[in-house]
Design a protein around this nucleic acid. Structure first.
Length: 124
RNA sequence: UAAGUAAUUCGCCUUAUCGCUGAGUCUCAGGAAUCAGAGGAAAGUCCGGACACCAAAGUGCAACAUAGUGGCUAACGGCCACCAGUCAUAAGACUAGGAAAAGUGCAACAGAAAGUAUGUACAGGUCAUGCUGUAGUGAAAUCAGGUAAACUCUAUGUGGUGCAAUGCCAUGUAUACCAACGCUUGAGCGCGGCACGUGCGAUAGUUGGAGGGUAGGCAGCUAAAAAGUACUGGUAACAGUAUUUUCAGAUAAAUGAUAAGGGUCCUGAAAACUCGGGAUACAGAAUUCGGCUUAUAGAUUUGCUUUUUAA
């Protein structure tokens, strides 16, 4: 499977995002937090993922864009190791909860840990 | 050459690997290759337009904005030119540059007194009296003047809401519940605030509360007051003509990530070549244009001024 991350794979529905924040469970691996819940989407993409950075911590749009790009990149490169043979459908939202601009290696490390925690908790 | 002053232009590059968005093309309908893909400020949301809707959007008052003269422009609170004033040796910079004979208010120090004024000394004058002059304080002393980044007055301008506008399609629900008022003797709603006025409201509902549903797609959405070049007119802002080009269109929101190398600048060691270290800014389109304001590492070119030296 390709290490891609297209529009179809993103979590876009406003309704689902609202529901996710209201009802989803969360695990964290500083400076990241993952909010997730299982869904009943009939789709080719079982896992839909969104990414978010608080406006409180990063006032400049440039900084938020940069962090979101790093998060997306880290997710894109490592998701297949965990979700390749998944059968349950999930909606995920990855939040950056740190206060400082991270480097890519920091984000990558935290992402690996986070995804590992997630798959340990939700074995297929 | 140095210091200064006013402007101009640019604001990292290359390669590899892995990706994202859009367009048309091909396709075995999984995808594939090709092309395009942030800024000078995209920012602040401070002015002015385009465009859309609000019923036909009226009059007066209030409110707000602007303020030398002329011009430019779709328009402007913007820009250009000129005049005046202030500052600077100068280049140049700045100006909230209409009105004090409509009214109200305010004014340090000095001075007897600064506004319902008139003390002292000397001189003059009268029936009498600060009635008159001089001295003295001050910018100003029964003569009035200053101040409108004080109220005010004058002139001119401003209807409101913003692409979450607006139109269409799809999905879906509740013509239900509570309260108040009302059914032509009219509840209430619209016309930015108030008043007037006016429109809607006769198959009579309306307003408020609490609640239910949708929150997906398409259009608007990027070819335009567009950009480049040349010529012409104009002191200039700008305008005209010819010609070439098509230059983001996302929507939890693309335009990237990583690695290596190279530029540029600063700096240390060297002083023939180089070897280290550091820095590489401000900042991310969201209907769209013209401005203004603010942020910005480092470069770049040009005009001008002053001083010293050289010629």
């Amino acid at each position: 499977m390709k290490a891609s991350y297209t529009t179809k794979e993103k979590l876009k529905s406003k309704k689902q995002i609202e529901q996710l924040f209201a009802e989803g469970s969360s695990i964290s691996s500083f400076p990241l937090r993952l909010v997730y819940m299982s869904t009943t989407n009939e789709d080719n993409f079982p896992v839909k993922t969104g990414v978010s950075v608080s406006k409180k911590h990063f006032k400049k749009a440039v900084d938020r864009n940069r962090i979101k790009r790093l998060l997306r990149e880290a997710y894109r490169l490592h998701k297949n190791a965990f979700f390749n043979n998944i059968t349950t459908h999930y909606a995920l939202m990855i939040l950056y909860i740190g206060n400082d601009m991270p480097s890519f290696s920091q984000v990558e490390k935290a992402m690996l840990l986070l995804l590992k925690k997630f798959s340990d908790k939700n074995p297929q």
